[in-house]
Design a protein around this nucleic acid. Structure first.
Length: 275
DNA sequence: CCGTCCTCCTGGCCGC
DNA sequence: TGCGGCCAGGAGGACG
């Protein structure tokens, strides 16, 4: 499940591969993944013939800036992968959209569970995508300050986990990094957000920063499907404290990690260290 | 406004 | 070994 560190890793790799390349043709094998324009033929017409000027990321969205002020927006959701392939590479079983570039290179969007989405629109119309228009600040940006986090936390009675998963509040955290952040901060994910004191909010703020930074430095987490822009797995799965470690020892105290449903998501935590 | 639940989707895994 | 059934969860929408 690609979250900010995974999408950032893909962005960095693709940036070096496809920037400056022209999109010669587009093959859409699963039209329902194209969310804008409504007509798939229109999507193809808008994208074909344009050069990829820049590869960017906002939250979990990948933004490929094309010539003429057009933006190709891709969200990988659960199992989406985006990678380049040379001429003659074996076909990917789950390829859903293929962008034919110059010199036999192609950019492939593959997705086994087909929950990923693609949009092509003018840069000035990006706010047609609700998730992008309402996206909260990046966790590593200055805009995401201790004061900002404290202000929001103090007003919410719902679970702290649910708050951290809300893309309108912080852009880019998902289930893995939320569980990891709360573990590092020593906070039980089911706590009511407004019950956190200043010290706990400070620990959480610092933990989010640390966990996301480490995730990026390790090239993301490959739990099952995630692959980077070269088709390679990440390395952060080797550093996880709680996520996917049900029954295994907590790295701090050795207590068995527990899994329960909180905020509608499978949630992993140490019952001894997190309160 | 707020929180909770449902829907989409299919490979992988579990148990019989 | 085969197979039915359940689970994974990002995001958007329905609902109370």
């Amino acid at each position: 499940m690609p979250e900010l560190p995974e999408v950032e890793t893909i962005k960095r790799i693709l940036s070096g591969r496809v920037t400056g390349k022209k999109i010669l043709a587009v093959n859409v094998f699963l039209p329902r993944l194209i969310k804008w324009p409504v007509e798939v033929g229109e999507f193809v017409n808008i994208v074909e013939g344009r050069e990829i000027v820049n590869v960017d990321r906002r939250g979990k969205y990948l933004l490929l800036q094309l010539t003429g002020g057009v933006c190709l927006v891709i969200h990988l959701r659960m199992t989406g992968r985006l990678f380049t392939a040379e001429a003659g590479s074996p076909p990917d079983k789950y390829a859903r959209v293929i962008f034919q570039l110059e010199d036999g290179l192609s950019l492939i969007f593959a997705d086994s569970r087909t929950l990923g989405v693609l949009y092509a629109l003018k840069e000035s119309e990006l706010n047609r995508i609700p998730g992008l228009a309402n996206l909260g600040p990046e966790p590593l940006a200055g805009e995401f300050s201790f004061g900002y986090l404290k202000n929001i936390i103090s007003k919410r009675r719902g679970t702290i986990k649910g708050l951290l998963l809300d893309q309108r509040i912080i852009g880019g955290l998902g289930n893995i990094y939320v569980d990891e952040s709360l573990s590092l901060a020593g906070i039980y994910p089911g706590r009511s957000a407004c019950s956190l004191n200043d010290l706990e909010i400070e620990r959480l703020y610092s933990a989010i920063n640390s966990v996301i930074t480490d995730g990026i430095n390790h090239g993301g987490t490959t739990f099952r499907d995630y692959r980077d822009g070269d088709g390679k797995p990440g390395r952060h799965q080797n550093y996880l404290r709680v996520y996917g470690r049900t029954g295994k020892p907590c790295p701090e105290c050795g207590t068995a990690i527990v899994k329960e449903v909180i905020a509608g998501r499978g949630t992993h935590y140490c019952p001894h260290c997190q309160h």
